[in-house]
Write a protein that binds this DNA or RNA. Structure first.
Lengths: 194, 194
DNA sequence: CTCAGATGTCTAGCAGTGCTAGGATCGGCC
DNA sequence: GGCCGATCCTAGCACTGCTAGACATCTGAG
């Protein structure tokens, strides 16, 4: 009876333990260092236990990604909340997005760079992912409408620019010192004439 | 004497054979399918031969990337050449860049997505890579100057947007039908007021 | 023409990967 | 107490990138 509940609770805790261990390991040493052996050692269980919780290593990475989607959605919501002005809100959103990616490069990679089977444009899309994109859409769409542009296309383009900035910055392929200049320029371009 | 030259020539041919084999295999089945064993089987030599030409697998991928940089530079130069008008040139450049990425996703990944030790902003940067970025800069800088924006930052931002569009499209994370809408909108934003 | 030495290539193997079959061990129920 | 099912681990498979050492082949001197 109660023992059953206790075991289910312990199992759920171990489930989360695996996810956070994978995340911490990836964040500390990169996804290349995340092996099932090191992971099982870290959670102090043998390898097969991992496979009783997840279908495979990819599923663990996907779980980390979903956790990231939730955090990103709340981060974007907060960034936008304090700014009633559309332009200031967009600006805060952009900096929030890029700061999110900068602070958790491994999680960001799991979400958007590594190959996954997470669906993006379908009904199987995780709800937190939809929520995160919804924040982007909410910030961009009004400005797009004001200039007579397609709101969806504008949102996708804005996201693409942020994603490009995030990944190229992470790979140190952009001049570090010009970060603010680039982001401010992006905001200027999108909000010009409004 | 002559035999020495013949062997050097054969060695150079085999060097290229390895690169093209890796590229074809990656393009056909993805980089995950490119293993040293399959590669050695494909070039009809044993594994250690690969290591007499390249330091390791990563070096082979990097060689494919450098080949890609050369092709990208010429593709961008051609795209821009036919359009004296700055705006039309930028537009052709953008479509050329994205078509390049769409047609060779594996090569594009080797160039810009997979982790490599290729240096980007230093003097050790491969010349073809500098040339490709030079084409971008040449197309964007005049328009940036016309609006009083930092040319370097504008080039980096434009590249980031293209890179984001390329990678998110490749991962089927953007609506396929709206491709032209997004690209045209990007050109509109960058060239607005000029 | 012969034969040491250099050059080139291959076989076999190492340590590590994701993943799994089979046996041992522990819990709760009759 | 004795059984049974759930839980977990040991051991192993087929694969990975990479390399040491044996083998062959070709070169050039005597």
């Amino acid at each position: 009876m109660a023992a059953q509940q206790r075991r289910e609770r312990e199992r759920a805790e171990r489930h989360r333990l695996i996810i956070t261990a994978a995340r911490e390991l990836a964040e500390a040493e990169g996804w290349g260092a995340v092996t099932t052996r090191r992971l099982s050692e870290r959670v102090e269980y043998s390898q097969p236990v991992l496979y009783s919780h997840f279908k495979g290593k990819d599923a663990i990475v996907a779980a980390v990604a979903v956790e990231g989607f939730e955090e990103l959605a709340t981060a974007l919501r907060r960034a936008r909340a304090d700014h009633p002005d559309a332009r200031a809100g967009l600006r805060a959103l952009a900096y929030g997005y890029l700061e999110f990616a900068r602070a958790r490069p491994a999680v960001y990679a799991a979400m958007f760079v590594r190959e996954t089977d997470i669906e993006f444009g379908t009904e199987a899309t995780p709800a937190p992912l939809k929520a995160a994109f919804g924040e982007l859409h909410g910030a961009v769409a009004p400005l797009a409408a004001a200039r007579g542009a397609d709101p969806e296309a504008c949102t996708e383009l804005f996201w693409s620019a942020l994603h490009g900035l995030a990944t190229l910055t992470e790979g140190s392929r952009l001049r570090p010192g010009a970060h603010r200049t680039r982001v401010d320029l992006l905001i200027d371009l999108v909000t010009a004439g409004t």
